[in-house]
Design a protein around this nucleic acid. Structure first.
Length: 213
DNA sequence: AGGCCGATGGCCT
DNA sequence: GGCCATCGGCCTT
């Protein structure tokens, strides 16, 4: 496909919550064997290092999480539940571990390629609905760990979308994490059919987009 | 529409 | 050895 402008990594370097919101509406393009596949990101979760017990980087650097400690704009791909991959984009400057988990997207192109890659998806909205589905669709696995998505020569690239209207951004607790359930660090585009269903936790109902509160 | 369950392996204590 | 930033199939409402 014809790429638009790539996102500037500096847009991810300031604050991980701002970075998460900025990633909504951006497009991730991957050159998979069947051709290019592109999704518009509609659901993400922020994970911060030292002070976030739910983050893979909370207990320091390991062989797995090294990318989170590096410069912003790189893919951190990890293997989970023995069969799935999930993908994050590193944020914050080098040495300050953080990442934004890519939870869902809407297929922009090419629908035929996308359905061929994910035959289990019966509806278009299910093609990249959920972090492992999104990773599978875009072919993100061990080989893609560490890729710079702000590099025009990378096989996986992040195109700067127009920022989503703040009125359309919702936030709530992160999915599937027991720790820090009170933090509304999951962000999504209201009304998107590709957003995984909201599962209210024991606390806080959906809060409007915003900082810790 | 929603709950339960099995698959399956790496990572960290 | 236990815990996962999950999915898809199958079952019941």
């Amino acid at each position: 496909m014809t790429d638009g402008d790539l996102l500037d990594r500096e847009e991810l370097a300031g604050d991980v919550l701002d970075a998460a919101v900025r990633l909504l509406g951006c497009t991730l393009v991957a050159d998979v064997p069947e051709g290019p596949v592109a999704v518009r990101l509609v659901e993400v979760e922020a994970y911060r290092g030292a002070d976030d017990p739910a983050s893979h980087s909370f207990r320091g650097r390991t062989a797995r999480n090294g990318v989170m400690f590096g410069p912003p704009g790189h893919l951190y791909v990890y293997f989970v539940y023995g069969m799935h991959f999930c993908a994050n984009i590193s944020c914050l400057p080098e040495g300050r571990p953080s990442g934004v988990l890519l939870r869902a997207g809407e297929v922009v192109s090419d629908p035929g390629v996308a359905h061929a890659r994910r035959p289990a998806a019966r509806r278009a909205a299910d093609l990249a609905r959920g972090p492992a589905r999104l990773a599978s669709l875009l072919g993100l696995g061990r080989e893609q760990n560490g890729l710079d998505v702000t590099d025009p020569a990378s096989p996986v690239r992040l195109l700067a979308g127009p920022p989503v209207d703040p009125a359309q951004v919702r936030s709530g607790p992160r999915v599937g994490v027991a720790a820090a359930h009170d933090l509304p660090w999951r962000f999504w585009v209201d009304g998107s059919p590709a957003v995984s269903p909201y599962r209210p936790g024991r606390n806080a109902p959906v809060a409007p987009a915003g900082r810790e509160g």
